[in-house]
């Protein structure tokens, strides 16, 4: 499980595969309780995409109806690339696909980890270029704190108490070959 942990970084597993399944099931229950099954789920690249797909499948099982599923790339909306920045490599663009018009829909933005909130700000700006949803909500597997913008999630799988320098790793079998959540800590980080 911690095969790639180097001598500098200690990986501490906080969710295993079964724990992740239970967490996602709880998120699904919350979404369905709040909005029923008539929601559009939009996963933010990279790991919001497999999470949104799993949530959609589970909601379809619970609510018995097809859930609209999309994916969003926020690279064109980032706030850390611009003429005032030193030379840098531009982020690789990924596919944005929305399943249909978002006007008057309840849209859930889905991401694996909520941290500074800057990705979500970019995603919100991107979404309004596609239309005017009835409501936009945010579902994340892990909220690790340390917000830099006034953004909060509506559905949170797990709150993790972290320091700003710790590294939260969420892995999905679809992308990473295994399921689970880890906290990576520098060896001299106190822990």
């Amino acid at each position: 499980m911690t095969a790639d942990s180097s001598s500098q970084t200690r990986l501490l597993q906080v969710l295993d595969e079964a724990g992740m399944d239970r967490t996602i099931a709880r998120m699904v229950a919350e979404i369905v309780e709040r909005d029923g099954g008539d929601v559009m789920l939009v996963g933010i690249h990279t790991r919001g995409v497999p999470l949104a797909a799993r949530l959609a499948r589970a909601i379809e099982g619970t609510a018995g109806r097809k859930v609209a599923l999309g994916r969003l790339d926020i690279a064109l909306y980032r706030d850390d690339v611009g003429p005032w920045r030193p030379a840098h490599q531009q982020p690789v663009l990924k596919e944005t696909v929305l399943p249909g018009p978002i006007d008057d829909r309840i849209v859930y933005l889905v991401d694996d980890v909520l941290f500074t909130g800057r990705t979500i700000r970019a995603a919100l700006d991107s979404l309004v270029d596609y239309g005017r949803p009835r409501a936009v909500r945010l579902a994340v597997l892990v909220d690790r704190g340390h917000r830099e913008l006034p953004i909060a999630a509506d559905v949170v799988g797990r709150v993790l108490d972290t320091t700003a320098t710790e590294d939260v790793q969420v892995r999905f079998a679809e992308v990473d070959g295994e399921d689970g959540v880890w906290i990576g800590r520098e060896a001299g980080d106190g822990g």
Partner: peptide, 22 residues
């Protein structure tokens, strides 16, 4: 990169803020 940027032309608002200030 152009593969992904082709999509901007199909949006209701055919504009992204990426090169603001350039």
């Amino acid at each position: 990169t152009a593969d992904e940027l082709l999509e901007v032309a199909r949006r209701p608002i055919k504009k992204v803020p990426t090169l603001r200030g350039y």
